[in-house]
């Protein structure tokens, strides 16, 4: 009887359901709630920034692949889309288009493709892009548009500071934390829902947590990194708040403002730049939490999540080498 040529390959002959593409599309799906919130508060601008960031990231990935790396194209694995969205989430919604493109160029071109593309970059590309922009264009990067519900007309040119910046400024001027909070226009509920000033994707803690739960459920991320970051920040700031509630902000305030949720759930959990073992992830998360609080409380910048993650990214290879999985049969060896 005639049969086709049989395929001969090594075991296993069955494969799991995960693929890079599925993981990346899962991350994109998880970012949708936060995207919707940003559209709700920033209007059409949110979509504009996202589209520009994604398009330029994919374009630069294609360009660098074509010119420098050669080999098969990797733009369809979806990682450039994720980088683009994360970059957009990390910038104010009124950012001029050319700054976004520069950010994408740095993120993809310098932080990712120079090291050999997906999987080889030591630092989170979106964050490198963001920090580059923050240092190069401090004015544009820190003039946050005031939120206004469903404002698609884009007439509102008013800008305001983030809660973190308000508190930082106030404390520097010798005001007490409670009086700053009293004069602050935002309640905790606003911070939870996203009715505060800030980068495009970081405003609503609820939407971000929703996305995080989705990724946990789909087993794209594990609980270690988000929980250890959030836990460390909570404990560290609670201690400070306990010491002097007038000069240090409350832990709830620290958790709900700034890029902490975005960083803990989406940025720090980037597989390429985070440790591999559970124990390593915990060390990494604690490190990010501590550095974040140090920068927020004593540093020059009001926000420190991006810097904290980038600093810990650099330590990841060490963590991987140090916290290896426990070998089977190692302990009882006589």
């Amino acid at each position: 009887m005639a049969i086709n040529k049989l395929t001969v390959s090594m075991s296993p002959h069955d494969y799991g359901k995960y693929s890079v593409k599925k993981i990346m599309s899962g991350v994109v799906l998880a970012m949708i709630p936060a995207l919707l919130v940003s559209v709700y508060y920033f209007g059409f601008d949110a979509i504009r920034v996202n589209l520009i960031a994604i398009a330029s990231c994919v374009f630069f990935e294609w360009l660098f692949q074509k010119i420098f790396i050669k080999g098969k194209l990797t733009i369809n694995d979806g990682s450039a889309v994720v980088t683009g969205m994360l970059l957009a989430f990390n910038v104010p919604s009124n950012l001029p288009w050319w700054i976004i493109v520069i950010g994408a160029l740095v993120a993809i071109g310098i932080a990712k493709m120079t090291f050999g593309g997906l999987g080889n970059n030591p630092f989170n590309p979106a964050l490198v892009g963001r920090v580059f922009l923050l240092i190069s264009f401090p004015v544009q990067m820190t003039s946050w548009p005031k939120v206004s519900v469903l404002n698609f007309a884009m007439t509102d040119a008013q800008t305001g500071a983030t809660p973190l910046a308000i508190v930082k400024e106030g404390l520097k001027n010798g005001e007490s934390y409670s009086s700053i909070m009293n004069s602050m226009p935002h309640e905790y509920v606003d911070m939870l829902m996203g009715n505060i000033g800030g980068s495009l994707g970081e405003i609503s803690a609820v939407a971000l947590i929703l996305g995080g739960l989705f990724m946990l459920f789909r087993k794209i991320i594990t609980w270690h990194i988000p929980v250890s970051i959030i836990g460390t920040v909570a404990i560290f700031t609670a201690i400070l708040y306990g010491i002097n509630p007038e000069t240090y902000a409350s832990p709830v305030f620290h958790l709900l403002t700034g890029g902490l949720m975005l960083g803990a759930i989406f940025m720090a959990t980037d597989m390429v730049t985070s440790p591999m073992t559970g124990k390593g992830m915990l060390v990494y998360g604690v490190g990010i939490g501590v550095i974040t609080v140090l920068i927020r409380v004593w540093g020059a910048y009001p926000e420190g999540v991006s810097f904290a993650i980038l600093i810990m990214n650099a330590v990841v290879p060490l963590i991987n080498n140090w916290l290896k999985p426990k070998r089977f049969g190692e302990t009882i060896k006589k």
Binding site: Y18, S19, V20, K21, I23, T74, D77, S79, G116, G117, L118, G119, N120, M271, V272, P275, M276, T277, G278, P325
Partner: peptide, 11 residues
């Protein structure tokens, strides 16, 4: 694809 260092193989 390239290894994305997710650590699944290790786990």
């Amino acid at each position: 694809y390239n290894c994305i260092r997710c650590g699944r193989c290790m786990n």
